[in-house]
Design a protein around this nucleic acid. Structure first.
Lengths: 181, 181
DNA sequence: ACCTGAACACCGTTCAAGT
DNA sequence: ACCTGAACACCGTTCAAGT
């Protein structure tokens, strides 16, 4: 229950926006009780980020089993980031991770980096079945570029609270060839 | 002096990472004195963001007068974002803006959005001299896509504190055609 | 096993009081 | 005109004390 409430807050307000007192109030308990389950904020952050990438990983595996057509996969993929914006203008954890980089405990950093790793690995798996030339290394580079660009699109759309901006930028990525059709 | 110290802190820790007490300590004064010059944190944030986009605008105008060759302009442009990473792993203000969106006072949001507007306008100006097809509207879309993608690259590189990651992603943008050569 | 109240050093903010 | 000390309600954290 703590993790469920904390996840929603973190995706909307970031790590610094997470407050033990606020969390406790929402659940109907005292802040000291939260500390019983998660001794420090770092512990909470680690558990949170881990659950986040576990969910994310499962979701990506679903997409892959659902359809192995690369074009469909990529469309469904960008839709995941869109969904976060739809649901209360939320963001991928990697975005906060970067913004609050200096404030994050090392243990939290590691877990949030796992999110990026999983996404890049999945994209690398999806890409080769397309007309992507080159070896495994250039494919991974391409996958990283796509992930970074989609993150940037989500970031920009969120900062304007304008989801149509996200759609437009993604279409530009397709048109320019960054995201193959 | 307050703005100079605050700018460095904000680019590294974000808006939430800005502390009146910490700021005062660095300058050698009490936190209440900072409030004399900037009554609220919102006032400080507005002044900070305004100075940021003013500097940014001047820098972009320099690039344009220096060389009107689009390829040179774009290379120099991506170098600006690289420079921030080099200098203490800092980030463009737009990144924090998005991450801390819900926490920002409206007045601050407006000033930080001006940063994005200036960058997109500049890119739109630089692009048409290339082999970019289409009308003004598609050029602006392309400019937005480039800005969002570069922001994403900066974000990802910062979250790993790995500047070579930034270089690789930018090269991928060039290779895929998102950033025309 | 789980929760609580009270304390601590932090935060932005306010304000009367100093020079 | 500029600075300060003290107060307020917030924050994460700790701990002795409760059931």
């Amino acid at each position: 229950m703590i993790l469920a409430v904390a996840k929603a807050t973190a995706q909307a307000h970031g790590y610094n926006g997470l407050s033990f007192r606020e969390l406790a109030k929402t659940i109907g308990v005292k802040s000291a009780s939260i500390h019983y389950h998660f001794p420090t904020k770092s512990d909470l952050g680690v558990a949170l980020a881990r659950r986040y990438w576990e969910d994310n990983k499962a979701k990506l595996e679903d997409l892959w089993t659902e359809s192995k057509d690369p074009a469909t996969c990529l469309r469904n993929y960008t839709a995941i980031f869109r969904k976060a914006l739809e649901t209360g203008n939320r963001m991928c954890m990697c975005g906060f991770m970067a913004a609050e980089y200096d404030d994050l405990p090392d243990a939290v950093k590691i877990e949030v980096q796992a999110v990026a790793d999983i996404n890049v690995a999945w994209l690398t798996k999806v890409l080769p079945s397309m007309n992507t030339p080159g070896n495994a290394k250039t494919r991974k580079r391409h996958a990283r570029a796509i992930f970074a660009a989609i993150g940037g699109a989500q970031l920009m759309a969120r900062s304007r609270a304008d989801i149509s901006l996200y759609d437009e930028i993604i279409e530009s990525y397709h048109a320019s060839g960054l995201i193959p059709c």
